[in-house]
Design a binder for these strands. Structure first.
Length: 210
DNA sequence: GGCCAGGTGTAAA
DNA sequence: TTTACACATGGC
């Protein structure tokens, strides 16, 4: 049934794995931090600033002055916290450069979660889109849509929602990437405010309000 | 002018 | 363990 939902969305939106809009893995990771509780349009402004300043590489970003970095990412809000998180992210990347990726996925996830400013959604996004690891990303859109569909309890937790999704899906990176992308595109197009609206491909299933 | 956005960390109940 | 709140800018 979850795959049916995937098919339904897939018929309405043009989403191809890996979907995440970025020119490099590092840019993807930076975007994941910057989009925390922030519109993607604002993230794009910040990414353009960083690109113009040649800061879209771990070494140059780590070497950048905190004030420079803060000015560049200001459009995304929370710029003091995020600049510190980005510097920690760069340090982690440079420190673990050249390491083999043979450790269990759960362990790699814990390493990312240990970085202050990187929580479950950001860590899973980095693993799925930056490292092509099979883990499902839960975001505000996912929670909202599946609550409305009556699939999630109103009080559902991140780990619970993630386990529920992954139990029902084949463990495939491209599927996880595509499905999450479809959820985001669908939410942006149809599920911002109202439970449902004209042209919503999930209208027939949408019976719940937040 | 008020509300919201692809979260996270911290403190208090 | 769960809930409340701060963090901040830009667009509608």
């Amino acid at each position: 049934m979850l795959l049916q939902l995937f098919d339904r969305l897939n018929e309405h939106y043009d989403v191809q794995a890996p979907w995440w809009p970025a020119q490099s893995a590092f840019e993807m990771m930076v975007g994941a931090v910057l989009t925390q509780n922030t519109r993607w349009e604002n993230v794009q402004m910040a990414l353009n600033n960083l690109r113009n300043l040649a800061l879209l590489a771990p070494a140059t970003m780590l070497a950048s002055e905190n004030e420079t970095l803060q000015m560049a990412i200001r459009p995304t809000g929370f710029f003091k916290q995020k600049s510190a998180t980005l510097h920690r992210l760069c340090a982690h990347l440079l420190h673990t450069e050249g390491e083999n990726f043979d450790r269990p996925l759960a362990q790699k996830r814990q390493e990312w979660l240990s970085i202050k400013g990187i929580g479950p959604e950001t860590a899973d996004s980095i693993l799925l889109y930056g490292y092509q690891q099979p883990i499902f990303v839960i975001d505000a859109y996912t929670l909202r849509i599946f609550k409305r569909l009556g699939r999630f309890e109103p009080s559902v937790r991140y780990a619970q929602a993630q386990a529920w999704m992954m139990q029902q899906l084949p463990n495939e990176v491209a599927l996880f990437q595509c499905f999450h992308g479809l959820i985001v595109e669908h939410a942006k197009a149809h599920c911002r405010k109202q439970p449902c609206c004209q042209g919503c491909p999930l209208q027939s299933e949408c019976a719940y309000v937040d």
